[in-house]
Simulated scan of single mutants.
Amino acid sequence: MDYENIYIEEENNIATITINRPKKLNALNKRTIAELHEAFKELDDDKDIQVIVVTGSGEKAFVAGADISEFAHFSQEEGKVLAAEGQRLLFNFVDNLCTPVIAAVNGFALGGGLELAMSCHFRIASDNAKMGLPEVSLGVIPGYGGTQRLAQLIGKGRAMEIIMTAGMVDAKKALDYGLVNHVVPQDELLPLSLKIASRISNNSPVAIKYAIKAVNAGFKYDVNGYETEIDAFGTCFGTDDFKEGTTAFLEKRKADFPGS
Rank of each mutant, 00 (worst) to 15 (best):
V54Q: 03
V54M: 05
T55C: 09
G56A: 03
S57L: 08
S57V: 08
S57M: 08
G58M: 06
G58D: 07
E59Q: 07
K60G: 02
K60Y: 07
K60A: 01
A61Y: 05
A61H: 00
A61L: 04
A61Q: 01
V63M: 11
A64H: 05
A64G: 01
G65Y: 08
G65F: 00
G65P: 07
A66F: 12
A66Y: 09
A66E: 04
A66D: 12
D67L: 13
D67N: 03
I68V: 13
S69I: 13
E70G: 10
E70D: 15
F71L: 08
F71H: 05
F71V: 12
F71G: 10
F71K: 00
F71E: 01
A72F: 12
A72T: 07
H73D: 15
H73M: 13
F74Y: 14
F74A: 15
F74K: 05
S75D: 12
S75Q: 11
Q76E: 15
Q76A: 14
Q76F: 12
Q76S: 13
E77Q: 11
E77D: 14
E78L: 10
G79M: 15
K80D: 09
L82G: 03
A83S: 10
A84S: 09
A84L: 13
A84R: 08
A84Q: 12
A84N: 06
E85M: 08
E85F: 03
G86R: 03
G86P: 12
G86H: 01
Q87A: 07
Q87L: 15
R88E: 15
R88M: 10
L89Q: 13
L89R: 13
F91A: 03
F91R: 01
F91H: 05
N92M: 06
F93Q: 05
F93V: 03
F93C: 11
F93K: 08
V94S: 03
D95Q: 14
N96F: 14
N96Y: 12
L97E: 05
L97W: 02
C98M: 08
T99C: 04
T99G: 09
P100S: 04
P100Q: 13
P100Y: 04
A103K: 03
A103I: 02
A104E: 14
